[in-house]
Design a protein around this nucleic acid. Structure first.
Lengths: 140, 140
DNA sequence: TCTTTAAATGCAACAGCGTTTCAGTAAAAA
DNA sequence: TTTTTACTGAAACGCTGTTGCATTTAAAGA
């Protein structure tokens, strides 16, 4: 990849701390969205849980990660691609939640067009979630 | 409407109780999805909060209401239309969350086609949420 | 390099959502 | 009217996420 983790933090105006390096590293390693509980589990006790919440909030605010809504009941995040800016997450791709493993994937290749709304409604953003069986679980 | 509240409960194999009649009545009166907290607020203290959770769970299980995911952080439900069955909620319509009033509406007229998935993924269900300003808030 | 300062962290406490268990109660069937 | 079944209320608990405050650390300036 073109940027190191330190550079990504610096570019987005965040101080380089061990928490942020560790957490961002997990996102770069993962092929699916990660919730706070996933991070906490993988970094068992290494950092305070409140710090992890604040780390995720900082990453989201700076446009490094974006929220991924699914039916798990807790908020997950994935890395943004370059088209996302600090104030606006502009990429409309499909999110896919596997009913077997529970993981949720960003399918960047599947573009979601804006829905047609009835008169009187004003559209600002949209979001699509698909459910089913993911590649790994299908072959397993 | 063709069925009374009592008949709806009976048809779906649920005992007719005062909790269920009151809660189902609220759904028939509302034009937007209702969360447990909305129900609890409108029926201030009339029933135990656990009973209300169980009432909603029973309605969903029987196919009377369906989950409406949005960014509010709590689960909302709306009345199903007739195409929903006990085990499968088959209606793919758009959900619209207003950023002003926070209400989420089922736009039954906007059909959501199945997304195209990359090879290896198996689709079972899908879900689309739009955000923006609703009709009432737009004119206000 | 040392000092300053602004930001990040850890800890304690708290609030909200949702679930489980169990005893008491009410609806529907016999 | 009695019996059976399932619904309800209450208490307790767990998980997710937030806030306030004291302490520590990163980064900027001398």
């Amino acid at each position: 990849m073109a940027h190191s983790i330190d550079e990504v933090l610096k570019v987005h105006g965040l101080k380089i701390t061990s928490t942020r390096k560790r957490v961002l590293g997990l996102y770069y390693q993962s092929d699916h969205a990660l919730a706070h509980s996933d991070i906490e589990g993988q970094l068992d006790g290494e950092f305070d849980r409140v710090t992890l919440y604040r780390t995720l909030a900082a990453f989201e605010e700076k446009g490094i990660i974006h929220k991924v809504l699914d039916e798990s009941g807790s908020v997950k995040y994935s890395l943004c691609n370059s088209s996302c800016q600090e104030d606006r997450h502009q990429d409309h791709h499909l999110h896919f939640q596997c009913e077997k493993c529970g993981n949720t994937f960003c399918l960047e290749g599947v573009h979601i067009p804006a829905p047609e709304l009835p008169g009187g409604y004003q559209l600002s953003d949209w979001y699509m979630l698909a459910k089913g069986i993911c590649q790994s679980c299908a072959v397993a």
